[in-house]
Design a protein around this nucleic acid. Structure first.
Lengths: 186, 186
DNA sequence: TCGAAAAGTCAACAAGTGTTGGCATATGCT
DNA sequence: AGCATATGCCAACACTTGTTGACTTTTCGA
């Protein structure tokens, strides 16, 4: 039960940081604003996280927690994956943090690459899919593009589409990227 | 032939601005850096464009120049559209400027919405497609997601995919979004 | 050729940034 | 209680940003 108080402010800082980074991106999310949200002094942020860059690294820690697709029939794999991603996206700021910041911050871009290329592609490799890297990349384009339009750019009507309709539209696309033979090998 | 000299530096500033905005995003592209690239004084930027915001607005002026799809068979419309977008994307910085900046800059986000929701959806409406807004939005998710992964995040192997392979993979997706009946109306 | 207008230079400003060190306060152990 | 230590606040730093105004140089038509 050591250091209980500090742990709480530590967590408050991290929560505020995630919100600010998600809402404003890396550059515009100032340490002073984060500190104000957490109702503490800016100096505390430095004491606990050392620097803005390190605070960001802590705030962008993330795990996609990919679902196990081995028991799912191939034709439904896309829908399961999309539903999982959308839900994951909406329950946790972190992915939005990453997406907002990856565009201007190389650290975030690298982490984003790890999340998708590093977690998706190996999963496909294990499932013995051919061209796992290309397929993972294509799925990333559709998944990230959807998230970009829905959460960041707030495109209508994508931003207010129900999860079910989104899954119904996007699922088959993902399934095709996952299972269809390479169309350029004709 | 009035003011020839000034026109040239005006153009130099705009070119440098586009490059910097495309490479660094709005916040990190400083007026000083842009001026240095254009080999002129930072004060000149202000004299000619008034403010950073206005310079950005000038640099982000863009027209997708959608191809006429009326003569194209429905099944190939997606491929034609994708090829056009990829080529457009690669010949002109401006879309990359928009994409990089739209994430943190509301002006850019609004312009992005205009380009896609404002140029794509009306074209579909004219072509008497049902739910033109949803279809335009879906196409935007795939197109922007591809651009994001390819030009901004530099995901491999998406970043180095040949245009032909990209078109072969993405074309059918776009075609489906354009022509398939709404899957959630079953 | 001369002089006004255009084009460009320079130094400085006010504001905001991440970051630091010193000082006050609260906490918890002996 | 008394004290070391953890926790927090304040003021200031060095720096960068967009922006401005005064000044010098160049251009070019009458």
């Amino acid at each position: 039960m050591a250091e209980k108080k500090s742990d709480r402010t530590r967590a408050a800082i991290l929560a505020a940081a995630r919100e600010r980074f998600a809402a404003d991106g890396y550059e515009r999310a100032t340490i002073r604003a984060i500190a104000a949200d957490a109702a503490i002094d800016p100096a505390m942020v430095m004491r606990y996280y050392g620097s803005k860059e390190k605070l960001f690294a802590a705030a962008a820690e993330f795990d996609v927690r990919l679902p196990d697709l081995s028991g799912v029939p191939r034709e439904q794999a896309g829908e399961v994956l999309v539903r999982h991603l959308v839900e994951r996206w909406e329950e946790d700021d972190t992915l939005r943090v990453l997406l907002r910041t990856a565009v201007t911050n190389e650290t975030a871009a690298e982490r984003m690459r790890q999340v998708f290329a590093g977690q998706l592609a190996p999963a496909f490799e294990r499932a013995a899919v051919d061209q796992p890297a290309v397929r993972a990349g294509l799925i990333a384009t559709q998944a990230l593009g959807f998230a970009l339009c829905r959460y960041i750019l707030a495109f209508e009507p994508i931003a207010t589409l129900s999860t079910d309709r989104a899954v119904a539209w996007l699922g088959p696309t993902i399934t095709r990227y996952l299972t269809a033979p390479d169309p350029s090998q004709v």
